Simulated scan of single mutants.
Amino acid sequence: MQVQQELSKDLIRRCQTGDRSAFSELVGQLMRPAYFQALALLGNEDDAREVSQETFARVWRSIGQYDAAQPFYPWFYTVLRNLAMNALRSRRRHPQVGGDFADAWLETAADQAGREPEQELRRQQQVARVNAALMLLSVSDREIISLKDMHDYAYKDIADLLGIPIGTVMSRLYTARSRLRSLLEEDGDEQP
């Protein structure tokens, strides 16, 4: 589910000139990854939809300020991340996540083919346990796990998105995975 790090420069340039069809194309390319990353940060489907939509509105209003010499997605992700963090601070509530968060991580097309009802029930139970464990992690732990394990970003790409060294990415990811593993072991579940 990794987003192309370098979107077409022509597409971005057209967006900067106010071309609504180009922006529509950009939204089409980024809508799904933006939603799932917001979901990873916020842990709530409604909040994730709201933040991802607000991100596109903000990007449209400020795309003229974007420096086309820089990669686009890190700039876009910064807007999304800042809005998600603001939403977490302002709502001051414990987020609850729907099945899509862990479901997107655990589900593959091969899993779907020919699944028996008993297998589907076990999978749904596993998704619920992983969701519960993920929501016990800090936002930064969920974010780093999401970027690497759900969206399949390279360490360098994560470092660029978060503005931290690659070594810090590896360290944070190791720690976050260890915390998740411990939570799942406490619950009697195996690592996904």
Score class of each variant (00 low, 15 high):
His94Thr: 15
Phe56Pro: 01
Arg179Tyr: 01
Leu173Met: 03
Phe23Cys: 04
Leu80Gly: 04
Ala22Arg: 11
Glu186Ser: 13
Arg58Ala: 06
Gln124Ala: 14
Asp19Arg: 08
Gln126Gly: 09
Ile12Phe: 01
Gln53Phe: 03
Asp160Phe: 13
Asn86Phe: 04
Gly43Phe: 02
Asn86Gly: 15
Asp111Trp: 01
Gly28Ser: 10
Ala109Tyr: 04
Thr78Asp: 05
Gln70Ile: 01
Ser24Ile: 00
Arg13His: 07
Ala113Cys: 05
Val169Arg: 04
Leu121Met: 14
Leu173Asp: 12
Leu162Met: 14
Val169Asn: 03
Ala113Gly: 03
Gln125Cys: 11
His151Pro: 00
Ile158Ser: 08
Ile63Ser: 04
Ala57Thr: 15
Asp47Thr: 02
Arg181Pro: 00
Phe36Pro: 01
Glu25Val: 06
Arg92Asp: 05
Ser171Tyr: 10
Ala68Lys: 10
Asp100Phe: 07
Ala22Ile: 12
Gln37Thr: 15
Ser62Ile: 05
Gly114Gln: 12
Leu121His: 09
Thr168Ile: 10
Asp149Ala: 11
Tyr153Met: 08
Gln2Met: 13
Asn86Tyr: 05
Thr17Lys: 09
Asp152His: 15
Phe101Gly: 03
Gln2Val: 12
Cys15Arg: 08
Gln29Asn: 04
Leu83Thr: 01
Glu107Pro: 00
Asp149Trp: 01
Met31His: 07
Glu45Pro: 00
Ala104Val: 03
Ala133Gln: 01
Ile158Pro: 08
Gln125Thr: 12
Ala22Glu: 00
Ala57His: 03
Ala113Met: 12
Arg93Trp: 04
Ile166Gly: 04
Tyr153Arg: 14
Leu7Ser: 06
